[in-house]
Design a protein around this nucleic acid. Sequence first.
DNA 1: AATGCAATTGCAAATCGTTTGCAATAAAAA
DNA 2: TTTTTATTGCAAACGATTTGCAATTGCATT
Lengths: 143, 143
Amino acid sequence: MNQHPAHKPDYEKELRRAGVRITRPRKIILRILTETDDHPDAMEIFQRATIIDPSISLSTVYRTMKLLEEMGAIHRHAFEGGRARFEQADGEHHDHLIDMDTGDVIEFHSDRIEKLQEEIARSLGYDIVHHRLELYGRKRRKT
Amino acid sequence: MNQHPAHKPDYEKELRRAGVRITRPRKIILRILTETDDHPDAMEIFQRATIIDPSISLSTVYRTMKLLEEMGAIHRHAFEGGRARFEQADGEHHDHLIDMDTGDVIEFHSDRIEKLQEEIARSLGYDIVHHRLELYGRKRRKT
DNA sequence: AATGCAATTGCAAATCGTTTGCAATAAAAA
DNA sequence: TTTTTATTGCAAACGATTTGCAATTGCATT
Ligand SMILES: [Mn+2]
Ligand SMILES: [Mn+2]
Ligand SMILES: [Zn+2]
Ligand SMILES: [Zn+2]
């Protein structure tokens, strides 16, 4: 379903290597994360997981997200409104355009913007560790 | 202390015009907002207000911030970590560089980035309503 | 396969920032 | 001044996330 032939990260291997146990909940959550193309929040992940195994708890979802984030396997986004949303950290860096009507998240990338950010930070005497660029908009009205 | 000779907005007048009562707490909060140059959070505003009038409550600070935000008098920022931070909405649009070590917020503006954002949104079929660009970085180590 | 034990879990309770219901208070209209 | 009504302070509620803890489970060991 995904056109990118890219890296299919083997998280279970990574986890093992980090000395972390491969448990049933973790397996399920990882599968959900690798199979989705969107940016689900913890509750969404929890609900999808519940379908597979109704005994999973929301706490475990949160704990697993934190674990994966610390391992660098996922990114956490704090878009406007409520909950944090997550996505796999494989693939290229990109920023997000959020459709204010539907909540859809569209990914984009601009080398020129990235460059300009670097220049600005440098001119202010800083090194960028990370950044956040979010565009909030609506579908153009066809007049 | 501020080099900008710019607009000194008369919020009390604006509030009156909007049919809102000029109360003691509101006066104090407005004064704090116009006198500061940084991006304080509600608790910070509350503490500064408490010095002037110890009877002010945190709820009132929150309520006033919401009111001012809805009037377009202030901007609310959700930088990383904890609380929302606020600033007057007068002055030109700008984005922020956050010093990860000190928490300092440095303002900057790039016409070129703003333009590029527009182009990107347009090419995706969207109109931007607003956006958020935050750089998180550290002071460059002088090697 | 059975054992032992530390890592992980589910649950409930706690936490944090923010919001809200309500009775008391204070703007501003009369 | 009196009346009207918005605003306040307080405590309790809120939603997202985290945590303590006893029970369970992965998995290294026999
Ligand atoms: Mn993304
Ligand atoms: Mn600012
Ligand atoms: Zn970027
Ligand atoms: Zn901008």
